[in-house]
């Protein structure tokens, strides 16, 4: 029983981390049809900011990292994506890859290829022990933050004026411009929000692993991308649910697979996901109306 519960807690907290990453990707995709693979590098930059400021007060470390990631997200949009606004999605995708590699190699140049380690918010690595169940504080925090952010984002999108305009832009960007929605601010705000999400993941990720490499964001974003596809491209709640599903699947396979098969866990994860998409290519939740009329 304890074994099962332990796995459920692990699954939810890993799923929450994926869900947060998927939210950041889904947010930008919904509005710009851009799959921003450089999102992972935002997370990586935040982690290196923690490394760089290590030794300062932890609140300052956290704030500097958050600020850097948010600024990087906004600059990214301004410098790399705004000039390509009218380009087709493939061009945008390639641009995001280029940006990702550029940032990885920039960090490589400055900090070197060897993994760095940094201790941040060590208290969060401690456990609550409940009935023989060991629950790391970090997992509780991760899950709580994910729920708060998801609810916050949904409320923001449904209730605020900017949220309404962002959703209008996500539905039909051209039409939104025609009714006067300011495209530049809507997109800048979307990137700002994706920066906030990426910054928070940086912090959580560093607390959890303590190890950084220039390529640390790559696998996280790949998984999150798959999660948004599973959830249904263009739906925020779908992205979060997709993240959760992938996290749960990963932990479940980790528990079920035999020791010899465990190194291939991710192959199983992706095989299941490919199977899922064959059956339901539109994802769990459909993002927008599939109807098109001329």
């Amino acid at each position: 029983m304890t074994f099962v519960l332990q796995n459920i807690v692990d699954a939810i907290s890993l799923g929450a981390l994926y869900a947060l990453t998927a939210l950041g990707i889904g947010l930008i995709f919904g509005i710009m049809r851009l799959i921003n693979f450089a999102h992972g590098e935002l997370i990586m930059l935040g982690a290196y900011a923690l490394f760089f400021t290590f030794g300062m007060h932890e609140a300052i470390m956290g704030l500097v990292a958050m600020a850097l990631v948010i600024v990087a997200a906004i600059v990214m949009e301004r410098v790399a994506f705004r000039p390509l606004r009218r380009a087709n999605p493939a061009t945008l995708l390639i641009a995001s890859f280029a940006l990702a590699y550029f940032l990885q190699h920039l960090v490589l140049l400055i900090f070197g290829a060897r993994p760095k380690s940094v201790t941040f918010l060590y208290e969060l690595s401690e456990y609550f022990v409940v009935e023989g169940l060991r629950i790391p504080k970090l997992q509780v925090v991760t899950i709580a933050i994910t729920i708060v952010l998801l609810v916050g984002l949904v409320v923001f999108f449904r209730r605020s004026s900017i949220g309404t305009q962002m959703r209008a832009a996500a539905e039909d960007f051209g039409m939104a411009r025609l009714v006067g929605v300011r495209a530049n601010s809507v997109i800048a705000i979307a990137f700002l929000l994706s920066g906030v999400l990426a910054g928070i993941i940086s912090l959580l990720y560093v607390v959890q692993t303590g190890t950084l490499t220039p390529r640390m964001g790559v696998s996280l974003v790949l998984v999150a991308f798959v999660a948004t596809v599973i959830g249904g491209m263009g739906s925020l709640v779908g992205a979060a649910v997709g993240g959760l599903v992938v996290g749960v699947l990963t932990v479940a396979l980790q528990a079920v697979l035999t020791v010899e098969l465990r190194p291939y866990r991710d192959a199983f994860v992706f095989a299941v996901l490919i199977g899922f998409l064959l059956v339901r290519p539109q994802g769990l939740l459909r993002g927008r109306s599939a109807r098109e009329r001329i």
Partner: peptide, 12 residues
């Protein structure tokens, strides 16, 4: 805007 309510379409 298909996914928005009628009200939000007009509000936009």
């Amino acid at each position: 805007f298909g996914g928005l309510s009628v009200f939000q379409n007009v509000e936009a």
